[in-house]
Design a protein around this nucleic acid. Structure first.
Lengths: 193, 193
DNA sequence: GCAAAAGATTAACTCGGTCAATCTTTTGCC
DNA sequence: GGCAAAAGATTGACCGAGTTAATCTTTTGC
């Protein structure tokens, strides 16, 4: 199954994504054309779009792994939903997971800076979160309570992560921010109980 | 000040918007090109974009009047924020305001159907709501509490309105839905107190 | 080793949106 | 009232994202 073809496909995929992100970070998302990226990897434009459906997805596929994570967590956890998500977020903070906004590696910081400050990418991110919300609401039962809770918990995570990212992008270290990040997470999740 | 030029401008603006919405409702947003709309009004394509920055805005400008309404309400109301917004939403339900999802006039229903079922338009609507959220958070003080509350109250309104619209689009009358709509609004806003 | 299928390539195209240049209308001035 | 100049509207030509159809290459099943 892992034939030459498969490997080459994976190579092209990685090469496209890496080249794209490098170019975007250097010149800005809007200043780089998809033709430039295709040329950098020595591939035609239609081929690029065979691998990534849109220009935005060249950047977003890294985050795409975490799609509908909240729904999966609630489904597989024995505890009540809010508690499971609270624990997961706090664990993420301790592990400095990028999704919590508390990872201060320069590359990660630069990547999120690209996503948050490029309107087209921020919009795409929001679309992912909307899908997350629908999935979570479904797992929670799909009724009014479920829809409200899903929206509120995902809003909470989004705001906490964004605040952490802002603090780090202003120069604070992840370690220095950690205490505040935990305190804010506790405060925020307490509102949902 | 209300010279010939002004009047003509307004006429062109209205004609463009009406022609666009009529064509979109008849053939679907993606099946109608902006060239078709420009042709229908006997205007060039660049002229159309002088009036509306994007194709989506030909549809969305009707809703755009309500941008940052929540922030304005909180700013001008003497009561505490959540209470003011709750009252405003309940008043909106009684008045069958389209923004509450509880208006069953066929034209309004068709319009919202267009917005909600067209991905590009739904995305644009979400962008407006994000701007609303930032404005409301600012008015509420801009700290963590403010950001969380802003997100939660706007999520609440969005979900309530969307549920009402779904009920009406399945054939229920606004009058029949009203009791449930009020009950759901009371339940949802109670969670924010 | 060969047939068939899967994938890549190219060129041409569609469509949303922009720009530089041109034309029209309004306005300030005599 | 008429005229010059500024302000604004209009246009044809253009750009970039994404698609499509036809052709060509490569891999794989037999």
């Amino acid at each position: 199954m892992t034939g030459l073809r498969e490997r080459k496909k994976q190579q092209t995929y990685d090469a496209l994504s890496q080249a794209a992100i490098a170019l975007f970070l250097e010149h800005g998302f809007d200043e780089v054309g998809v033709a430039d990226i295709a040329a950098a990897v020595d591939v035609s434009k239609p081929t690029l779009f065979k691998y990534f459906p849109t220009k935005e997805d060249l950047v977003m596929h890294r985050i795409a792994d975490h799609r509908q994570e909240a729904a999966r967590i609630v489904e597989s956890a024995p505890e009540p939903p809010v508690q499971a998500l609270r624990t997961h977020f706090l664990t993420g903070l301790a592990k400095r997971e990028p999704t919590t906004g508390l990872n201060d590696h320069p590359q990660v910081l630069a990547y999120y800076n690209l996503v948050f400050t490029t309107p087209a990418l921020a919009t795409r991110l929001r679309q992912f979160m909307d899908a997350d919300e629908r999935a979570l609401a479904g797992v929670l039962g799909g009724d009014l309570e479920a829809e409200l809770l899903a929206a509120q918990v995902l809003s909470t995570q989004r705001i906490l992560a964004y605040r952490n990212w802002r603090a780090l992008s202003e120069g604070q270290s992840a370690t220095a921010r950690y205490t505040t990040a935990v305190a804010e997470a506790e405060t925020a999740f307490a509102r949902l109980g």
